[in-house]
C-alpha cells in the first residue's frame, strides 16, 4: 500500500515538473511582459531596469536555470503586476475555487447517483429512457456554450440572476450549473451502468431472496459495490474542474484560480502563471491521493492486494 502510494506520488511529481517546464517555455513564446507593461515609446532605460529586475535580460536557458533553482527552494518570484509574491497570489485564489469545485462536485455526484440509480432500478422503462436521453444531452453539452446561453437567458432575458461576481448566492448559481451539467450527464451514465451490473449480480438476488426490501438492496447492497467506477470517474471530473474554473473565470468574471491564470496569461505575468500551474498541479496530485484512499476504504479487496 505504502509502496503503491509512493510510486504514484513519484510519477505525479515527474509529471508536474514536465508541466512546469512546458509552461515556462510556452509562456515566453507569447512575447515579453514589456510589451504589455509599458506604453509605446517608453524610455529605454526604464525598460532595461524592468528587464533586469525580473531577470528578463538574460538568455532564456539561463532564465530557466535560475527559475528552476529558485523554485526547488520554494521561491517562484514576485508578480509583475501585483505587489506580492507569485505563490501568495496563486494560493490566495485557491480557497474560492476549491469551494466552487466542491459544491459543483457534490451537486453533480449527488444528482448522478439519484438519477443513475433510478435509471438502473427501472431499467429499460420510460423512466430509464428519459434519464438516459437527458444525461446524453447534458454530457455532450460544452460548458462554455451553456455559460453563454445561461447568461443570455437567465441574466439578460429574464433578469433572474446576475451576469457576474460572487458576492451574493445568486451569483453562484450559473457558475455552479456551468461546472455541474456535463459531469451530471457523464456520471449518470456511469452510475447507471455500474448499478445495473451490481443489481443483476448473484449477491443482490440472494439478498432479495432473504426478504430484504428494495431500499436496502439498492442502498446497502448495490451502491457500495457500484461506488468504485463512480469514484474514479468523479475523481477525473474533480481534476477537470480546473478547466471549468477557467471558463467560469472568463465568462462570469468569477474569482478564483481560473481567472488568475487567464489574467496572468494575458498580462504575461510569468511568475504568477508558473506558480498557479504548480498550485493546480499539487491540488490534482492531492486529489488523486484522496481518491486512492477512498478506494481502499470502500473496497476490502483493494485493501489486501
Amino acid at each position: 500500500m505504502i509502496t503503491f502510494l509512493s510510486r504514484r506520488l513519484t510519477s505525479s511529481i515527474i509529471t508536474l515538473i514536465g508541466v512546469v517546464v512546458m509552461v515556462f517555455f510556452l509562456a515566453r513564446l507569447t512575447g515579453s511582459p514589456v510589451d504589455v507593461f509599458f506604453p509605446e515609446g517608453a524610455a529605454p532605460e526604464r525598460i532595461e531596469a524592468f528587464n533586469r529586475a525580473y531577470g528578463l535580460d538574460k538568455p532564456v536557458i539561463e532564465q530557466f536555470r535560475i527559475f528552476l533553482w529558485k523554485a526547488l527552494q520554494g521561491d517562484f518570484g514576485d508578480s509583475i503586476w501585483q505587489q506580492r509574491s507569485a505563490m501568495a497570489a496563486a494560493w490566495g485564489e485557491m480557497p474560492i475555487t476549491i469551494v466552487l469545485a466542491a459544491i459543483a462536485l457534490s451537486v453533480s455526484t449527488g444528482m448522478a447517483i439519484i438519477l443513475g440509480s433510478l435509471a438502473a432500478v427501472f431499467r429499460f422503462t420510460v423512466v430509464d429512457r428519459t434519464i438516459t436521453f437527458f444525461s446524453l444531452v447534458l454530457g455532450s453539452m460544452p460548458a462554455f456554450w451553456f455559460a453563454l446561453v445561461g447568461i443570455l437567458l437567465f441574466a439578460v432575458h429574464w433578469r433572474l440572476l446576475p451576469t457576474s461576481g460572487s458576492n451574493t448566492w445568486l451569483a453562484w448559481i450559473l457558475p455552479v450549473a456551468t461546472l455541474c451539467l456535463q459531469p451530471i450527464g457523464v456520471l449518470t451514465q456511469v452510475v447507471r451502468g455500474a448499478m445495473i451490473d451490481v443489481l443483476t449480480s448473484g449477491f443482490v438476488r440472494n439478498a432479495r431472496a432473504r426478504g430484504f426490501n428494495s431500499r436496502r438492496l439498492v442502498f446497502r447492497h448495490a451502491l457500495r459495490n457500484a461506488a468504485l467506477p463512480i469514484i474514479s470517474v468523479a475523481g477525473d471530473i474533480a481534476a477537470g474542474m480546473v478547466n471549468g474554473a477557467v471558463i467560469v473565470g472568463v465568462v462570469f468574471a468569477f474569482p478564483g484560480i481560473g481567472k488568475l491564470i487567464v489574467g496572468a496569461m494575458l498580462a504575461r505575468d510569468f511568475p504568477v502563471l508558473q506558480a498557479s500551474v504548480v498550485v493546480v498541479g499539487i491540488s490534482v496530485i492531492l486529489l488523486n491521493l484522496i481518491v486512492d484512499l477512498i478506494y481502499v476504504l470502500v473496497d476490502p479487496r483493494v485493501r489486501l492486494s
Partner: peptide, 10 residues
Amino acid sequence: QDALDGLNPV
C-alpha cells in the same frame, strides 16, 4: 448455484 458470486464482496 453460483456460490462464488453469492456474497457481497464489500
